[in-house]
Design a protein around this nucleic acid. Structure first.
Lengths: 358, 358
DNA sequence: GTTAGCATTGTAAACGTTTACAAACACCCC
DNA sequence: GGGGTGTTTGTAAACGTTTACAATGCTAAC
């Protein structure tokens, strides 16, 4: 049976399609009796307005495109849940795509979303400062809001935390705990401006505290091969006593591999993550991490975009608060190096050290 | 600047819109030189075909609607990732909605998805056997595939595991380990036919092993208030020595609350979850659970739906394999009850006990 | 009784595609 | 040279809405 159209409803109700349209759009100026007839016809036929026809005519799809790296990382899943919550108020629906951290998939997915004529986009891209596709959105004047991507010279609207300050916060806390040899495990830096900002803050704070440049290991975001990397790091002399991981998933995997290698966490090495995924507090050991409010971040991004769609001019970046959550994976620096070869760690001069929580 | 249309491209290239359409659809029978001209015009104007116009004409949106309870539970997030992977092959995109476990949101969301004229749907509903909205989809002959919802008399296409057998598997394993007083913590049973099937299998196997009816506590899926529930259970005489939770998130929360109440896991009570979310192996204690292949489940659901859209008749249910994953949250029954008041547990007669792994 | 004003409804033209059909043309064979 | 065949292109109608505009009928004021 063919699906009923407004025309069918019109015939059944004995009115014109224009009247039907007025009724379903709750427009003013239609006789209550007529409206009742139309509603009866709608119910009788099981009519459901065709959004495609409407979109074509009104040039508005009531669709928001969402692109994130992957749903397998709870930090993004939660944000999308928040976005869904946020756009529902405005009567928008979500057209979803995942890039799997691949840049070419990023462009391709956005192109697809644009084909559907989404009214706006919420995106987490590899690098907000250097993105052809974002340039394209800008020139085409297609409204979008970034999520997680750091604010910067690009002046693009985004909702995020201060990743650099957060990275510094971690370094300072580690220094406070007596760590002198720091390391960072990150997803490939070119694939994540967040990770880059976190690393920058981390390294800067380490330098400010008079520490040597932290070791940096980059691994692919998807299926990182941590075992050889970590084995290598801890086979070398004077390995780090603390590792900052660019996200919680990486931190969890890192702790798992370290444990497998017989390296005690936090006895021999402390691990700090980033994101504050809910499950972290239930891990063994509980995960020390920088918490960012993901659901709220998604909701805010949605709200900002709706505001923009509502006619407001370019919206300013929003920086949400972050916080360091303590966990059992973080402890004081061990008294001596793993190999026993390194000299004892000199005491840290506390006066220079400050943690900052925005 | 107005967005370029096929008409603009046609004028620029000096051809008709029909030819433009033929070119972008890679149709046969167009002169290579003409095609080149058209491609040049497309590039020059930055033309992007309007999917809305196309959908209207072709009566196919190349859109798949997805409805799940929530993205906050990794089991669904992973499945959606799998679905996205699966439909991408066919050139489909995903229109996403979450019901938050509320039935009325379920209908409302599906109605919305249908307005966009999705070509098909992948759904996890509260109760596949009793759903007005699924009846509606059936009569309207709108293709859909369920995910996670158990197969049953309703004969609806679904991709799932044998939840009942899995529930029985858990009970049998607990009996093997000497547990005699079992309990189940579940989301509200009317809100989840999966939980119901798991409970059924669990209770049946317990009965078959000659055990008393397992205790059952139902809590809301969203923000379950476990503390009073568990406190109540363990204040009563002869509390259970093993708890089967209807999903991993609930199991994790349960372990957390039990620990807070000073009840040792698995020393005093064992906890078994369901879903096999990846993080479970990193928990403290590691989570014993029934593993279902979520990503694969999503991928399969997508494939089944595409097959159906490709013209195949009603597709049969697919039952994927499940497996019990051991974890430290599961141990042998304690020698005596928590209060010390209960009699010693009689030894279990092993011959009657069988575990089954499909 | 006329007519201005208002409320209600209808008519028809878009929106951007796809596609059946027709037209134009070149080629080849007799 | 005529006509059949095949390739390439164009014309125009449709898909299901919304909405500007016109038309209709009614009320009320003159």
């Amino acid at each position: 049976m063919r699906r009923a159209t407004a025309r069918d409803v019109a015939e059944t109700a004995g009115v014109s399609v224009a009247t039907v349209s007025r009724v379903i759009n709750a427009a003013t100026g239609v006789n209550p009796e007529t409206a009742a007839k139309v509603h009866a016809a709608i119910a009788e036929l099981g009519y459901r307005p065709n959004g495609v026809g409407r979109s074509l005519k009104t040039a508005s799809s009531r669709l928001i495109g969402v692109l994130i790296p992957t749903l397998s990382n709870p930090v993004f899943a939660e944000a999308v849940d928040g976005i869904a919550e946020g756009v529902a108020d405005g009567g928008y629906s979500l057209l979803f795509a995942a890039s799997d951290y691949r840049r070419e998939a990023e462009s391709r997915s956005i192109e697809t979303l644009l084909r559907y004529r989404v009214d706006g986009l919420i995106l987490t891209v590899a690098d907000a400062a250097d993105s052809r596709i974002l340039d394209l959105l800008d020139t085409a004047e297609i409204p979008y809001v970034l999520a997680y991507n750091p604010a910067g010279a690009h002046r693009r609207p985004t909702v995020t935390v201060d990743n650099r300050a957060a990275g510094a916060l971690v370094a300072n806390r580690l220094v406070e705990l007596g760590h002198r040899r720091l390391g960072m495990i990150a997803g490939r830096l070119p694939d994540s401006d967040r990770a880059r900002a976190r690393h920058q803050g981390f390294a800067e704070a380490a330098a400010a505290a008079g520490l040597p440049l932290p070791l940096l290991a980059e691994v692919p975001f998807t299926r990182p091969e941590l075992e050889p990397v970590l084995a290598g790091i801890f086979a070398a002399p004077d390995p780090p006593t603390a590792l900052f991981c660019s996200n919680d998933m990486l931190a969890i995997a890192t702790i798992g591999v370290l444990t497998g290698l017989g390296i005690a966490v936090p006895g021999e090495v402390s691990v700090v993550g980033f994101d504050g995924i809910a499950i972290g507090t239930h891990l063994h050991p509980t995960l020390a991490t920088v918490v960012q409010p993901s659901r709220e971040l998604g909701r805010t991004a949605a709200r900002q975009l709706l505001r923009r769609l509502g006619g407001e001019a370019a919206v300013a970046p929003v920086i949400l608060p972050h916080a360091l959550r303590h966990g059992a994976s973080l402890g004081p620096a061990p008294k001596s190096g793993r190999s026993g070869a390194s000299a004892s760690v000199p005491p840290v001069s506390s006066p220079e050290i400050r943690t900052s929580t925005p």
